[in-house]
Nucleic acid binder design. Structure first.
Lengths: 245, 245
DNA sequence: GAGTGGTCTAGACCACAGC
DNA sequence: CTGTGGTCTAGACCACTCA
C-alpha cells in the first residue's frame, strides 16, 4: 500500500491522501468509534511517507474531531460527543451561559407506523415501523424546561419499546452499547417559535409563549439515519454565546 | 530577543512562546489588523528557533483566526469578520439556513447621556456621553425583520451623530476606516424572548410574538469596549444549523 | 530573480502509558 | 523496558507574488 506511486500526481498534497486513507478505514467500518488506529510509525511505513506527514494528516483529523490522541497510548477514532449539541447552552437564571443539569423522564414510549412527514425526514418509505419516545426534561425543583419528541427506526432497536428497559438520560449510550449501533454524527437546526398547545401543556407555559426548537437528525454508519428528534425548550431558559474574531 | 534562554524552563513548549510573542505584538498595538507580520525565516532568526517551530506557532494562530496566510505574500493580522456573527444564519422561508441580504436603514441617531445599565455594559462610568444609533433591517419586499439598538462611546466616533454622515450596512467598516478605531473582536449572546412593545411596532408584529435577541459587545484594542448592541429579529425568520461529531 | 508560504523528509530527544 | 505521541531541528524542493 504505497501512496507515492499512482496516488500522487493528483495535485493533492500527500498528507491529504493520508487523511483520505484514514477516513476510508473509518467509513468502511474497518475502524469504528473508540478504536485505536495504527501508530504513526506504522502508517508511515505502510504508506511509505515520513512520520511528519502522517502526523500532519492526523493533526488535521484531530482538528476535525474525527480522531483524538492520547499520549503514550495512541490515536483513537472519536466517539460522537453530544456535549457539542447546541442545547449544551441551556441555562438557568439568565443569559450567562451557565450549564445546568437536566433530568429526563420518559413520558411516552410506543411502537407506531411512521407518518409521511416523519418517514420523509428519516428517509425511509412511508408506514415504516417506528419507535416513538417522548421525554420531558426537568431542571432544579422539577420544573419542566424541555420536551423531546423522538422517532427511531424500530428494526435497529428491537425491544426498546419494552417498559422494562430503563432509558438513561443519554439515550445514545444505550443505543451504542446495547444494540451495537454506531452513532456516527448528527445534524441540528435551531429555530424559535411560539409554543403549540401540547408542548405548552407539557412545559406548563401558556400557548404562544416563545420556545426554542432543536431538530436533530442522527446518523449511523453509511449515512443511514436512525433517529429524528424534535426538542422544544422554554426560551427563557436558553442562551447561546460566542466570540467573533 | 532569544526565547531559548530564560523563557524556556517554563514547561511551555517553544512554539507556544512564539505564539505569545506574536500575540504580544498585536496586543501592544505594534501590529494592527491588516498588517503584514514578519516572515517565517525572519521570526525564526530573531527568536532563535527553527522555521518549523515558527510555522507551527503561526499554524495555531491561523487556526484561531488571529492571522491568515497568503502564499507568496506573507502572513497578515486578521480583520474581524462579522460574517461569523450568529446572525449570518438569518434566513427566509424556512429552517434551511439560506442567507438573505438584509438592508439596514437608520431610524434614529443622537448623542445622549448613558443610562446606568448601558454604561455598566460598556464598562465606563455612569453618564458618559454616548452615541445612540437605531437601525431597522429590511428583507425582500421591504419587510422589517430586525431592529438594532446600538450605543457607542461618543468620544471615539466624533461627528458620527451628524445626519450628513452616511451609515453603511456594515457600520464597522466606517469605524475602522474613517475613525481609525481598530475593531478587534466581539462577543455575542443569543436568546429568544417575547417581543416588547417598541420592538413589535418596529417589526410590525404583535407584542408577545417570539423574537430572537442578539446582544453584542464590541472591543477595540486593549480590551476596551467601544459598542454595545442589541439586535432583535423576528423568530420566524431565523434558524441556526450545525453538525455534531 | 528574490522572497514568501506550502510540502515533505529524516532524525533527534522528551514525556507518558503499560507491562 | 518498549512503544506511543509531542516537540524541535535542518534542510530540501515547490508554488506563488511582485518587481
Amino acid at each position: 500500500m504505497t501512496l507515492t506511486a499512482a496516488s500522487r500526481m493528483q495535485a493533492k498534497p500527500l498528507y491529504q491522501l493520508v487523511e483520505d486513507h484514514i477516513r476510508s478505514l473509518i467509513d468502511s467500518g474497518d475502524l469504528v468509534p473508540g478504536d485505536l488506529i495504527p501508530s504513526e510509525p506504522q502508517l508511515a511505513k505502510t504508506l511509505d511517507v515520513s512520520q511528519g506527514t502522517v502526523k500532519k494528516a492526523i493533526d488535521n483529523l484531530v482538528w476535525q474531531r474525527l480522531l483524538y490522541r492520547h499520549q503514550g497510548k495512541g490515536t483513537y477514532v472519536s466517539r460522537i460527543d453530544f456535549n457539542n449539541s447546541l442545547f449544551r447552552f441551556f441555562s438557568y437564571g439568565d443569559a450567562e451561559g451557565k450549564g445546568v443539569r437536566i433530568h429526563k423522564e420518559t413520558s411516552a414510549r410506543r411502537l407506531e407506523i411512521g407518518s409521511a412527514e416523519i418517514c420523509r425526514r428519516l428517509n425511509v418509505r412511508e408506514k415504516t415501523q417506528l419507535l416513538y419516545i417522548e421525554r420531558i426534561g426537568y431542571g432544579p425543583k422539577r420544573q419542566p424546561v424541555l420536551v423531546e419528541y423522538s422517532h427511531w427506526l424500530a428494526e435497529l432497536v428491537p425491544g426498546l419499546e419494552n417498559e422494562d428497559v430503563h432509558i438513561p438520560d443519554l439515550l445514545y449510550a444505550l443505543i451504542v452499547e446495547e444494540y451495537g449501533v454506531p452513532v456516527v454524527r448528527a445534524e441540528e437546526t435551531l429555530i424559535a417559535e411560539a409554543a403549540d398547545a401540547p408542548t405548552a401543556a407539557r412545559l406548563k407555559i401558556k400557548p404562544g409563549t416563545p420556545v426554542v426548537v432543536l431538530k436533530r437528525v442522527t446518523y449511523t454508519s453509511g449515512e443511514r439515519i436512525i433517529e429524528v428528534r424534535t426538542t422544544k425548550g422554554r426560551a427563557d431558559r436558553f442562551s447561546y454565546k460566542t466570540e467573533i474574531r
